[in-house]
Amino acid sequence: MEMNMKKLLTMLMALMMVLALAACGNDTSAANNGGNEPSTPTNALEKIKASGELHVALSPDFSPMEFVDSSKSGQEQYVGFDISLAKFIAEELGVSLVIEPMSFDASQTAVYTSAVPMSISGYSWTEERAQNYELSDYYYAGDNETDQVLLIKAEDAAKYTKVEDFAGQDVGAQNASLQMQLLTEQIPDANPITIGDLAVGVMELKAGNIEALAVAKGNAEMIIDANPDLVICEFQFEVKAEYEANVILMTKGETELLEAVNAALAKAYESGLYGTWYDAAVELGKSENAKELTLD
């Protein structure tokens, strides 16, 4: 009886050792190849590739950079230079592009809070943006997007020609924009009026609620094409070199995505795509189907 008990204990101990070794072997295999479960993405770039989609926030009220083709619907309705750039970046990452339309300041907030990883919306470099976001290398849409001007009524062309003429006058600019910064710095005696949407700003100008609207020259030309009662003011803002081109906003700390985006920008530049995209966007912006979408 005692001998049988010893044999039984020996067999039980041997079985436990076999099971323990098998478990260790499985753990080692899982550690070596990740088991059957895919690894969890740890940064924005990995999440984009895992989902197969690049979500980009932008404000489609800024022709020819981003606007709406009313003859199309869904994602296809969003067009312009920045859309072409966003599509190119998505292709370079091997994913599909998803445009997230929202207001200009909401686009920046969405990136800051990581609601979306990226915004491409005609942004200029500013020190504040450099502190709060990962900013891409510069991309260059052309001189008309570098120059910053004031739109006024054609009937006021002789009335407003220099800085002093705007003293005490209401002048509009988009919230959190380079134009608002230039306005407050270079026309300090004007009353800066925050405009959430450029289409609304144009309506405010035409209605006489503001005397001028600060915009990029390329945008001004597209607006005038649709509104011949408006003109570009003789006064023009002085633009520092660091503000002359555009940058892409990405969530702070997402350096892997930043590196991938900069590589795509370099490839687009070397391929001479910027001029082609801009010319096509200008032509489309002059068509009867071109609309600037107003968003809250």
Score class of each variant (00 low, 15 high):
229 D>T: 04
229 D>W: 03
230 L>Y: 04
231 V>T: 13
231 V>R: 01
231 V>L: 01
231 V>W: 01
231 V>S: 01
231 V>N: 01
232 I>A: 05
232 I>M: 04
233 C>Y: 06
233 C>H: 05
233 C>M: 07
234 E>P: 01
235 F>V: 10
235 F>A: 11
235 F>T: 07
236 Q>G: 14
237 F>T: 02
237 F>V: 12
237 F>P: 00
237 F>E: 06
238 E>D: 12
239 V>P: 05
240 K>C: 04
240 K>E: 11
241 A>E: 14
241 A>Y: 10
242 E>A: 14
243 Y>L: 02
245 A>N: 15
245 A>D: 09
246 N>D: 12
246 N>Y: 07
247 V>I: 12
247 V>N: 06
247 V>E: 02
248 I>F: 11
248 I>E: 00
248 I>V: 11
248 I>W: 05
249 L>A: 04
249 L>R: 09
249 L>N: 05
249 L>D: 03
250 M>L: 09
250 M>Y: 06
251 T>G: 08
252 K>W: 11
252 K>T: 05
253 G>H: 03
254 E>D: 11
254 E>A: 07
254 E>L: 04
255 T>A: 13
256 E>N: 10
256 E>I: 08
257 L>N: 03
258 L>T: 09
258 L>R: 13
259 E>N: 14
260 A>V: 09
260 A>T: 04
262 N>S: 08
262 N>G: 01
263 A>T: 12
264 A>K: 10
265 L>M: 07
265 L>E: 06
266 A>S: 14
267 K>G: 01
268 A>R: 08
268 A>V: 03
269 Y>E: 11
269 Y>G: 13
269 Y>K: 15
269 Y>S: 15
